[in-house]
Design a protein around this nucleic acid. Structure first.
Length: 246
DNA sequence: CGTGGCACCTGCGTTACATCA
DNA sequence: GTTGATGTAACGCAGGTGCCA
């Protein structure tokens, strides 16, 4: 078992190996196999460290996860353990800590992911709702482009879905209707002004949510599709809406 | 100055055993 | 009493670092 001596570290050159032989009487028989040695260790009631030993080791680990050789020797002397045992305990403790940390990180990432999924679903619903509104408004303004016809809401374009508008902020989870609710039925000028304002506000909200929004949304050309005239000008833009996140 | 050998340290994967449900 | 899951002390190996001839 050559590595056993090698791994003893610097301290083993001083006391480690001799001391190990002290705690492992089975090693007095050099021909003893590895299994036999481990068996004899298990027969020793001292296989597990005492509560006091663990308590001290834990308190040291809290302040320093790695031990200087000198400190290791000192701790070993205090606890009546071999420096190698202390070294191995710290090694295993670091591994346990790392494993817990990974578990913790995973949970955090999972929560973030779930939140993003819920944001995505919410935005998808918002999209459907907006499409329905657009359809309705287009009809109101006498627009009957093919794009608009194609974008018909499969559920019939219910304007009541606008109650979801402005309520998709996943971070806050705030409920309640948006500030523009209930105003859609006014004059055409009001509608176009309102929609432009809403689009700008929505754009800001989307930017605030994070970077997972489609890059194309960051372009003003694709966002100010309502133009100064308040018209649904380019059929390609409505196609864009149809393809948005679908 | 570069190099090889050596001692030492550490992380990682694994093993052997104890304990518990 | 047996068995599978889990926790833990210890081992074995590989890779890195520092020292020295």
């Amino acid at each position: 078992m050559p590595s056993e001596y090698r791994e003893g570290g610097r301290e083993s050159q001083v006391a480690g190996d001799d001391a190990k032989l002290e705690t492992l009487p089975c090693l007095e028989a050099p021909q003893a196999s590895n299994k036999k040695m481990k068996k004899s260790i298990s027969n020793n009631n001292n296989r597990r460290f005492s509560d006091e030993q663990i308590k001290l080791l834990e308190s040291i680990f809290e302040s320093e996860s790695k031990l200087e050789p000198r400190k290791k020797m000192q701790v070993a002397r205090e606890l009546g353990l071999q420096p190698r045992q202390v070294a191995i305990w710290f090694q295993n403790r670091r591994a346990r800590w790392k494993s817990k940390q990974i578990e913790k990180d995973y949970k955090t990432l999972r929560a973030n992911y779930d939140n993003l999924v819920s944001c995505f679903e919410s935005l998808k619903n918002e999209k459907q709702s907006l499409l329905a509104q657009l359809q309705k408004l287009s009809e109101m303004m006498g627009l009957s482009s093919e794009d608009c016809r194609n974008s018909r809401d499969p559920e019939g374009g219910n304007t009541s879905t606008s109650s979801n508008y402005g309520n998709t902020n996943c971070e806050t989870g705030a409920a309640g209707p948006g500030p523009e609710n209930g105003r859609i039925g006014s004059s055409q000028d009001d509608v176009s002004i309102q929609m432009e304002h809403s689009a700008q506000q929505d754009h800001r909200e989307l930017q605030g949510r994070g970077n997972y929004v489609d890059d194309s949304l960051e372009s003003p050309e694709t966002w100010y599709i309502f133009g100064s005239g308040g018209q649904f000008e380019q059929s390609s833009n409505s196609s864009y809406w149809l393809n948005f996140w679908s």
